[in-house]
Amino acid sequence: MSKIALIDVGGTSIKFGTWDGHELAKTGQSTTPATLTEFYQVLQMHVNLLQHRTPIAGVGISIPGSVNKQTGQIEGKSAIDYIHGFDIQSALTQQLHLPVTLENDANCAALAELTDGAGQDVSNLLFMIIGTGVGGAVIIDNHIWHGKHLFGGEFGYMLVDDHHILSDIASPVKVARHFTKRQADGHIYNGKEVFDLAESDHPLAKQEVDRFYRVLARAIFNLQYSFDPERIVIGGAVSNNPELLPRLNQEVAACRDASKIGTILPSLTTCTYTDAANLRGAAVDFLATYPNALH
Results as ranks from 00 to 15, higher is better:
residue 3 K to C: 09
residue 7 I to F: 09
residue 11 G to S: 11
residue 16 F to M: 08
residue 21 G to Y: 09
residue 34 A to C: 00
residue 39 F to C: 08
residue 40 Y to A: 01
residue 41 Q to F: 01
residue 56 I to P: 03
residue 59 V to S: 00
residue 70 Q to C: 02
residue 74 I to R: 00
residue 76 G to V: 06
residue 81 D to A: 14
residue 81 D to W: 01
residue 88 I to C: 05
residue 88 I to F: 06
residue 88 I to E: 01
residue 90 S to F: 00
residue 99 P to R: 10
residue 100 V to W: 04
residue 120 Q to Y: 07
residue 128 M to W: 07
residue 128 M to L: 15
residue 135 G to L: 02
residue 136 G to F: 05
residue 138 V to W: 02
residue 138 V to E: 07
residue 140 I to C: 09
residue 146 H to Y: 12
residue 155 F to V: 09
residue 156 G to H: 12
residue 161 D to E: 11
residue 161 D to Y: 11
residue 165 I to S: 01
residue 166 L to P: 03
residue 175 V to F: 09
residue 176 A to T: 10
residue 183 Q to M: 15
residue 183 Q to D: 05
residue 184 A to P: 08
residue 187 H to K: 14
residue 192 K to V: 14
residue 195 F to R: 08
residue 206 K to I: 03
residue 209 V to I: 14
residue 212 F to Y: 15
residue 218 R to I: 02
residue 223 L to S: 12
residue 225 Y to I: 09
residue 225 Y to M: 04
residue 228 D to E: 14
residue 230 E to A: 13
residue 230 E to C: 04
residue 230 E to V: 05
residue 231 R to D: 04
residue 232 I to W: 07
residue 233 V to A: 05
residue 233 V to M: 11
residue 237 A to D: 12
residue 242 P to K: 08
residue 242 P to G: 07
residue 243 E to H: 14
residue 245 L to K: 08
residue 248 L to I: 08
residue 248 L to T: 10
residue 249 N to M: 03
residue 249 N to L: 00
residue 253 A to T: 11
residue 257 D to V: 10
residue 258 A to C: 02
residue 259 S to F: 14
residue 262 G to A: 15
residue 263 T to G: 03
residue 267 S to C: 07
residue 268 L to I: 06
residue 271 C to Y: 00
residue 274 T to L: 10
residue 276 A to H: 13
residue 277 A to L: 04
residue 279 L to I: 03
residue 280 R to Y: 13
residue 281 G to Y: 01
residue 281 G to W: 01
residue 281 G to F: 00
residue 282 A to S: 14
residue 283 A to D: 05
residue 290 Y to G: 11
residue 292 N to A: 13
residue 292 N to Q: 15
residue 294 L to R: 12
